[in-house]
Design a protein around this nucleic acid. Structure first.
Length: 804
DNA sequence: CGTACTAGTCTTTTT
DNA sequence: GACTAGTACG
């Protein structure tokens, strides 16, 4: 009995076909990690390939660690010499050795999003770019996309001719790259781009890595971008033993430059590619799988696949709709507690997935309330907290004096009486001499323009110099403690003595212990390496399986994971799919959301609950959203509750619950008197909704997916009319929801069109305005559409555009 | 130079 | 709603 006997036929083919280009199309849950690990084992064990000649690229460090572990379990030796890493850490490792060949120091700094923004802000000032018209964010986005596509500043410039905005971006891009170079820094995208540059400029270096990586495997191939593909193509150029694994249906990072063509056109680039499809799903029950299939089927641009399973049936999928978002969260917490209580599963078997990070908060509140242990993946990254960034900036300054961003961040933290003016003067001096900011500081007494402030700069420079020289003798742990003591950073926080300061001190302690454990794991731990590891951690990397906690995370973070019990929260059109993609005129955007839905559904092994709320607070505004189209795409017979949930029955379950909710019991649901009371809409408001829902019923069949942002003014004026029970009784059919959830219109000042004007509607196309009737808060517009006939609609919903 | 308040922005997703 | 950048004032 060999370890390969447990594989199915296709999996074995994928494992045994070791030479030449291979494309493995691996559906969700089809055992692709198993294939990859067995393939590595096979290479080492049966083909006598040295572990150090094998490379595996994964999407996250966590995946890399797990892969190494599993290979270790299979082979028992050598796994530590396999190169298993993400694209980014692969590139950093290469660049740390050879960056000097392309004009950087080998101890270059890696800039995160914050650093990028800081730099871009300065550039905009310098180039006199009006950031009201063209935001730093937008420029950085454009720059990043250009890098993903391997478009250099010069090429970008050539492509910008005649386009005013693009020309500005081009100038900024050019300047941005030169600042980065000057600061001896690279951003995330540069790590890939510069490695390619290195390979193209130094064939000897490329040759060396081509020799090393005789067998290359790439996981999550559908999410690679053009630059990453080029990198792989170069590396595999010697032996051509390139095996990529992916699933076009799970491509969810287009916004980050992922090029789906990489997987769809693999056979064109490598015409001798061996292709194998893994279609048997080992993860989920057939109900879950059928739901996933029926959703993804609605996408047009995909390779046809038929995932199947022999796990017949399983429990049906659950669907629940609630009036308020907090009720939804409360239900999920309650349901998890119930499952735990009834020994159906443990906390760690459950995960709650949602579209946006912001949705985590309301869930957290209810989990705390219910006393359920949970972890939130992502959100505010540990390393992007102020206090952590400050201390890291000290480390960066000590490590790389050319990193102006880091130096400027800490030059006056804690306060040393060094102000903005002084910093500007020093920068001017540095610019005139063409030296770094830090080097300019060293010559403070030469800078005539700063006068007395020079005396404040000297102690700072001395302090940094002393740290540097001490680093020869002590380790990173001593260094960080020395920094904290010398600067009095923690001492000042202690003086503040409030909750926030306490939390910050805790974070700093956490940082210290991270440094300590880093030093324990790495014998020759260097500052540069530590900073690099810190720069490249993903949110998901920190999650440990050993904790018995419910995991809360975005759908994106959930990729590659699986859980027996999965909750998909916020299944509303406008949330998921997001408002942005619904209103976009590119249908491919909704397709990407649908793939995300597919990823979410296929995370579930046994049990899947989909939920949504009719009313939800988003960025301080109350939204009314219809049930997600993705829920509607699931055949009704798979769901246990196709109808909106009966409030009464739900409530009885609450009553039975063993944990106390005394306050709640006294006022069951009437008036929704707990959380959000101040946001509770008035009775008048609700009758208004019903009204509009009836008015909308005429038009809703063509356009049921519209999410509406309701004007604040209406919501924030609560009346104490607690007896109003919002339209629950009316909601006996899912199809009604779309109409009802239209909500109230926003108060539009004036209309940009009048009777007789030609207008355009996002869904119905062009038409002529026939009538405009004024309503209390809006206008009812009658439009005769060229292709859809006459429709009545409210101006605030219809978003009609006048055609000139 | 440092602080406190205000106004504006944001978020869809992240290595 | 939360955070941040910008401004006015001490």
């Amino acid at each position: 009995m060999s370890i390969y006997d447990t594989l199915n036929k296709e999996q074995r083919e994928a494992v045994f076909h070791t030479d030449g280009p291979v494309l493995i199309l691996a559906g969700a849950g089809s055992g692709k990690t198993r294939v990859l690990t067995h393939r590595i084992a096979y290479l080492i064990e049966k083909c006598q390939i040295n572990p150090w000649n094998i490379m595996a690229i994964t999407f996250t460090n966590k995946a890399a660690g797990e892969m190494r572990e599993r290979v270790d379990d299979l082979v028992g030796y050598g796994s530590e010499s396999i190169w298993v890493a993400t694209f980014h850490s692969t590139c950093v490792r290469i660049l740390r050795r050879y960056a000097d060949r392309i004009g950087f120091d080998n101890n270059f700094t890696i800039y995160d999003t914050d650093d990028q923004k800081t730099i871009m802000k300065e550039i905009c000032k310098k180039l006199q770019i009006d950031t009201k018209m063209l935001k730093e964010r937008t420029i950085l986005g454009a720059v990043s996309s250009a890098k993903d596509e391997l478009i250099s500043p010069v090429e970008y410039d050539l492509n910008s001719i005649g386009d005013f905005t693009k020309l500005k971006i081009s100038k900024a891009y050019m300047e941005y790259q030169s600042v980065l170079r000057k600061n001896n820094a690279m951003d995330f995208d540069d790590l890939i781009v510069k490695t390619i540059e290195l390979f193209k400029n130094c064939p000897d270096v490329l040759k060396q890595y081509q020799e090393k990586f005789q067998y290359i495997m790439v996981d999550e191939y559908q999410d690679t971008n053009t630059a990453q593909f080029e990198l792989i193509r170069l590396l595999a150029g010697g032996y051509r033993n390139l095996c990529v694994v992916g699933d076009d249906d799970q491509s969810i990072y287009k916004f980050r430059g992922a090029n789906i063509r990489n997987i769809l056109d693999f056979e064109k680039v490598y015409d001798d590619a061996f292709i194998v499809k893994l279609e048997q799903n080992y993860r989920s029950t057939s109900n879950v799988l059928e739901a996933a299939n029926s959703v993804i089927r609605n996408n047009i641009g995909r390779k046809e696949k038929a995932l199947w399973t022999d796990k017949e049936g399983g429990s049906s999928l659950h669907f629940r709709q609630f009036d308020y978002a907090y009720e939804e969260a409360e239900y999920i917490a309650f349901d998890v507690a119930k499952k735990k209580r009834e020994l159906i599963c443990d906390y760690k078997d459950c995960a709650v997935l949602f579209r946006t990070n912001a949705q985590a908060r309301i869930l957290e509140e209810q989990f705390v309330k219910a006393g359920i242990p949970y972890d939130v993946v992502g959100g505010v990254n540990f390393y992007s907290r102020k206090e952590i960034k400050d201390l890291l900036a000290y480390l960066k300054t000590i490590d790389n004096g050319k990193d102006d961003v880091a130096v400027k961040r800490i030059i006056n933290v804690p306060k040393r009486g060094i102000g903005a003016t002084t910093i500007v003067r020093v920068q001017e001096y540095a610019d005139s001499r063409n030296i770094s900011f830090y080097d300019a500081l060293k010559e403070a007494d030469q800078i005539m323009t700063i006068g007395k402030s020079a005396s404040k700069l000297k102690p700072f420079v001395d302090m940094i110099q002393i740290f540097r020289s001490k680093l020869e003798f002590y380790g990173l742990k001593e260094l960080i403690k020395d920094i904290i003591d010398t600067t009095g950073y923690v001492a000042q926080l202690e003086a503040d003595n409030d909750e926030e300061a306490k939390a910050r001190i805790e974070n700093i302690d956490e940082l210290i212990s991270k440094i300590v454990s880093y030093e324990e794991e790495h014998e020759e731990a260097t500052l540069s390496e530590f900073l690099e590891e810190v720069a490249l951690v993903a949110d998901i990397d920190g999650i440990s399986k050993d904790n018995n906690k419910v995991l809360l995370m975005t759908l994106h973070s959930s990729k590659g994971l699986e859980f027996p019990h999965v909750y998909l929260a916020g299944m509303e059109d406008g949330i998921f799919p997001s408002y942005m993609t619904i209103t976009s005129d590119d249908p491919a955007e909704v397709e990407e959301e649908r793939r995300l839905a597919y990823v979410g559904i296929t995370r579930a092994k046994e049990d899947l609950t989909l939920s949504c709320a009719k009313q939800r607070m988003i960025r301080g505004e109350t939204q009314y959203n219809p049930v997600s189209r993705f829920v509607r795409e699931i055949p009704g017979e798979l769901l246990d509750n196709r109808l909106p949930v009966s409030k009464k029955r739900e409530f009885e379950e609450y009553e039975e619950a063993s944990y106390e909710r005394a306050a709640f019991k006294q006022k069951p649901y009437a008036g929704v008197s707990r959380v959000n009371r101040e946001q509770k809409p008035s009775g008048a408001f609700y009758s208004r909704i019903s009204q509009s829902s009836q008015a909308e019923a005429v038009t809703s069949e063509g356009n049921p997916y519209q999410s509406i942002v309701k004007p604040k003014a209406v919501v924030t004026k609560p009346t104490t009319n607690a007896s109003v029970k919002p339209f629950i009784a009316k909601q006996d059919q899912l199809s009604n929801i779309a109409g009802i959830s239209k909500g109230a219109p926003s108060v539009s000042g004036t209309l940009s069109y009048g009777e007789g004007d030609r207008v355009k509607h996002i869904k119905f196309g062009e038409g002529t305005v026939k009538a405009i009737v004024e309503e209390p808060r809006d206008y009812q517009i009658t439009v005769e559409f060229d292709d859809y006939g006459t429709k009545k609609m409210l101006a605030a919903f219809a978003k009609l555009q006048k055609i000139e």
